[in-house]
């Protein structure tokens, strides 16, 4: 009887844990990611160590390939398979360098999750605010979370005070391509230059 009871308890916990991982909300996901980043930023690690840790967060929490393709806009349809492969590789390195570089300067970043809005089965917007300090005003940050796979939530965009960073990057990349006679290689060259610096 005791054996059956133990089995029952184990099964119960198994389903409880599975259910918990399935039902992690977008808000909880963002809260966990921002807390992790905040702990790294306020730690006594060196900047180089912080950057390495932040890159790991970026790898796990952001849909880098998806954002990379989105930022190509209409030009993603014109990529050859080789170009696509090369671009994805470059973009991943570019994104992680840029992402960690942007964050590492904020040693006192505290983010409060306010609410979430489920837009459809694929996207939920999580509303947060970066707590203000004496030097910096409070900043509203909305997160576009890709929820198609509920077990693997991913960030696709950050909207800071209503301004979409993915969109800004898309327009930035498109500008480089257009100003070089619609040549995608010019963008690849710019990304390479950025990575070399």
């Amino acid at each position: 009887m005791k054996f059956i009871r133990n089995i029952f308890v184990l099964v119960f916990f198994y389903f409880f844990l599975i259910n918990y991982s399935w039902s992690q909300s977008a808000s909880e996901f963002i809260s966990s990611v921002t807390n992790e980043a905040s702990n790294i930023l306020s730690s006594k690690l060196t900047d180089v160590e912080k950057i390495e840790q932040l890159k790991k967060i970026g790898e796990n929490a952001v849909d880098i390939d998806g954002v990379g393709l989105y930022t190509l806009g209409k030009y993603r349809k014109t990529l050859t398979d080789n170009q696509k492969k090369h671009y994805k590789e470059l973009y991943r390195r570019y994104f992680l360098k840029s992402f960690s570089g942007r964050l590492v300067g904020y040693s006192d970043a505290k983010i409060a999750v306010l609410s979430e809005e489920i837009k459809n089965e694929k996207y939920t917007i999580v509303y947060t605010k970066l707590i203000g300090t004496t030097d910096r005003p409070e900043v509203k940050i909305d997160w576009r979370v890709y929820t198609k796979d509920p077990e693997n939530l991913l960030i696709r965009d950050l909207i800071i005070e209503g301004l979409s960073l993915a969109r800004a990057q898309k327009e930035e990349f498109n500008s480089i391509i257009i100003n070089n006679g619609n040549n995608i290689d010019a963008l690849l060259e710019s990304l390479n230059k950025f990575l070399e610096n």
Partner: peptide
């Protein structure tokens, strides 16, 4: 400034969005 590959285009996008 530090993380843009075309700062001019980034500022333009942010301004127009704003």
């Amino acid at each position: 400034e530090k993380n843009s590959v075309d700062l001019y285009a980034t500022v333009r996008s942010l301004y127009l969005q704003d």
